[in-house]
């Protein structure tokens, strides 16, 4: 009964004409990337190292273990790359500015590992608001970070020490 009704309704439909500019129709604006940075401009916000969501380590040990700024950059970029490619969490990352995320994640890691960076990104709460992340998604992201750190030969105990700074952020990151 319902199937027949559905089918007849489907058949009653007119196909939309071929040459409709749907972006214009729905008022979608083209986003221009900043020619210098390659990033999509964001609404202004107050920049502060406290936005990184964790107090940095003291001393140089952790920064050295992570291969200095170069090592941290490789880990951060690989981490972002795996996240965008991971089918488990693709839906959360889709539509995000990967260029900007590479930079802010690097700054955050570099700042927390005390490798001499300032974090200029947004705070954890506002940057994760409305993403609909669940604990399972956070677990997937942790696994991806573990993979990125493993590929840079960061010892497991040091990986965990770094994760101990990130784990309490779950309060701001998990939405549901």
């Amino acid at each position: 009964m319902l199937l027949t009704a559905t089918l007849s309704l489907l058949l009653m439909q007119q196909a939309p004409s071929e040459n409709v500019d749907w972006d214009a129709e729905f008022g979608v604006e083209e986003v221009e990337r900043d020619p210098a940075t390659g990033e999509i401009p964001v609404e202004p916000y107050e920049q502060n190292n406290e936005n990184a969501g964790a107090k940095p380590f003291t001393g140089d040990d952790m920064a050295e273990t992570f291969g200095g700024r170069d090592g941290i950059r490789q880990i951060a970029e690989r981490f972002v790359e795996i996240n965008f490619a991971d089918p488990r969490i693709q839906g959360i990352f889709a539509g995000h500015d990967e260029v900007r995320l590479r930079r802010t994640i690097f700054e955050q890691f570099c700042y927390i590992l005390n490798a001499g960076c300032d974090y200029t990104g947004r705070d954890m709460k506002s940057s994760h608001e409305g993403l609909g992340s669940r604990k399972a998604d956070l677990n997937a992201i942790v696994e991806n970070l573990q993979q990125a750190m493993r590929e840079q030969d960061v010892p497991f105990a040091a990986q965990n020490r770094f994760l101990s700074k990130l784990a309490p952020m779950s309060r701001d990151v998990i939405n549901r």
Partner: peptide, 22 residues
């Protein structure tokens, strides 16, 4: 009602995609 029918169609499409979700 035709708009509803259209949405039914798009729903089935998204369900197919969800089916491939690992």
């Amino acid at each position: 009602m035709s708009l509803c029918a259209q949405e039914v169609l798009s729903d089935t499409q998204s369900i197919d995609q969800a089916g491939t979700f690992p």
